[in-house]
């Protein structure tokens, strides 16, 4: 059966004055209807750019240099602007990081909801308002009818993120891309919002791409994980296998860094060093300067993402290849 979403060898570049910078390098993955995938990695890994490339909203001067984005059978990477517009907020919607910044301060909640419906459907103001109230109820906003005439500043951060989620749900999308939806919120509110996302995705057939730097968040909500490092996928598989048995040294480092992980005592184990700036990506495997298992080949040649049957996932690391051959 056709996948809901299939990224094929996507490369995203930013055309800067001194030349092009590759922010997303040869990223491929698939998502089926109702799948919930976590896209994880340190800040600057290219997660947001990957997410925004799907709906054609990479900020200037970024562009998709090559690859295909098949969504319900159409290639979004080569679609005209009007057709893309009609998919945004309709078949694919987004949730942003900071709910204090996501809503327009001078427009009412009602306007910001009904305009979304009317951009995609020919319906009256009353019908649109009724649908808006219904979605506000779905995200557990009390007395939703009264809320339509209020402005964003009259709500708390957690409530605003619920409203943003309600907006994302308006057109019953097939896919929601949530970019760090809980990062800007208090810890207690974070848990509520995650529960809400899980509840909404579990009831419907909505697919979810959850972008976050926080593996703990991903392990609560998703059934699949894609780990990115410096614009490339380094490990991809089911959440269960990756959380309990990370194989790529970078993923292992991320999991060791989690508070309460089995490898830590009382302190946090950060991965030593920093992710390279995209302009100074080292030759070979881009992770090698920070890798505790670095070998000669890692400095010379870039590993390829391959499926390893015994690990039930894709990994991009020479350690795996060597184990496979039983060499060293």
């Amino acid at each position: 059966m056709e996948h809901l979403l299939e990224l094929q060898n996507i490369v995203v570049r930013f055309a800067l004055r001194f030349g092009d910078l590759t922010a997303v390098d040869d990223v491929s993955f698939t998502l089926d209807r109702g799948d919930r995938m976590g896209l994880v990695g340190e800040s600057g890994a290219g997660k947001s750019v990957t997410g925004f490339s799907i709906i054609g909203l990479i900020s200037r001067p970024g562009y998709i240099a090559s690859g295909r984005i098949l969504f319900e059978g159409t290639d979004l990477a080569h679609l005209n602007e009007e057709a893309l517009r009609n998919i945004r907020g309709n078949r694919i919607s987004m949730i942003f990081q900071d709910p204090m910044m996501t809503l327009n301060p001078v427009l009412t909640i009602g306007t910001q909801m009904t305009e979304t419906l009317q951009a995609h459907m020919d319906i009256t103001d009353e019908e649109a308002a009724a649908m808006a109230v219904d979605r506000l109820r779905m995200v557990h906003i009390p007395s939703p009818e009264k809320r339509l005439n209020q402005y964003p500043h009259e709500f708390s951060g957690g409530m605003r993120q619920r409203i943003v989620i309600a907006i994302a749900l308006l057109m019953d999308p097939a896919l929601i891309i949530a970019d760090e939806p809980t990062t800007a919120l208090d810890v207690t509110i974070q848990a509520e919002i995650l529960d809400l996302l899980l509840e909404l995705c579990a009831t419907g057939k909505t697919g979810l791409i959850l972008i976050t730097h926080d593996l703990a968040v991903v392990s609560q909500v998703t059934d699949k994980i894609t780990v990115m490092y410096a614009g490339r996928i380094v490990e991809m598989g089911s959440t269960d296998t990756i959380i309990h048995d990370p194989r790529h040294p970078y993923t292992q480092g991320l999991i060791n860094a989690l508070p309460g992980s089995r490898h830590t005592g009382s302190r946090l184990n950060q991965i030593p060093g920093m992710m390279p700036n995209l302009l100074t990506i080292p030759p070979g495997c881009s992770f090698h300067p920070r890798c505790p298992f670095m070998m000669d080949i890692c400095t010379k040649q870039a590993p390829r993402l391959k499926y390893y049957k015994e690990h039930e996932r894709q990994i991009s690391c020479f350690l795996m290849e060597n184990q496979n051959k039983g060499s060293i």
Partner: peptide, 9 residues
Amino acid sequence: KFAWAKGLH
């Protein structure tokens, strides 16, 4: 950016 993501004209 969110307004674009909502698919507004």
